[in-house]
Amino acid sequence: MRFVYFSILVMMINMGCTSCQREEVAPHIKKNIEQGSRSIKSNTKMVMIPGGKYKPFFGSDTSMIKVDSFLIDERPVTNGEFLEFVKAYPEWRRSNVKRIYADTNYLKLWTSDTTLPDTVPLDAPITQVSWHAAKAYANAVGKRLPLLDEWEFVAMADNEVPNARKKKSYSDDIIDLYLIKNRQFNPVKKSSPNYWGVYNMFDLVWEWTDDFNSVLITGESRAGEYSDKNMFCAAGAVTATDVMNYAAFMRFSMRAGLKANYTVNNLGFRCAKSIHKN
């Protein structure tokens, strides 16, 4: 009995320590640890994106969407970082996660709850994670997932200008990247950054957004203009603002096929943060 008290004490000291040597938490103690008392750090550099208005890929020609200034991770979250997360948050380990939060492919390539095979490099982006898991990670590092409009706002840039959508090669160049198989095993930040200094928007993984399925929901200024029907066959051609932007079609098609507990081999995420005005 005394030993248990002692263990808890040691545990609490560990928790308080920021250098965070994470130990396996015994199941009977796990319950006693409050969610908020745990935290992990993200050292990923964030890039400030000055807000503005942009024309979303779906919607009427005239509807411009306002995007507030925000911070976004300069690159996707890596396998190594997600490993630290599951070490600190045992409920997100493969053997503990609930099916409603992540399907059976969750972290499937990993060799155990906390070990990865050599084929899954620590500096490559995390994949096979659900929206719930991505959101929990973002929460744990004090960030959030980017909104779809934020992500697409950043995605308009090539490495020269903030909005390259009018360039003829814009979509084709992205598609060239999209169609390469197994690129999710390449390390982050090896390709050149875009205009904002953001890396790997297209060349490694698809990325979750907080409201990935919002294009399926009619609402706000775009109410009634589209529903999921518009994603299929020729209907997409009616509502897309740029019918030759095949890369955007692919992203929206991908998002339309997702559910929050799906985990996909080439789908990862990066984090964002709001800028609070004083």
């Binding site: 029907k229 299929f232 098609s253 991908m254 339309a256 997702l258 985990t263 996909v264 080439n266 789908l267």
Partner: peptide
């Protein structure tokens, strides 16, 4: 998949959209 032999929305396209692995 949209099958022209099917009577129903999208010929099955909406109902069958599958992301990789699904």
């Amino acid at each position: 998949i949209d099958l022209h032999a099917v009577t129903g929305p999208g010929g099955g396209a909406e109902a069958t959209t599958a992301v990789p692995g699904q």
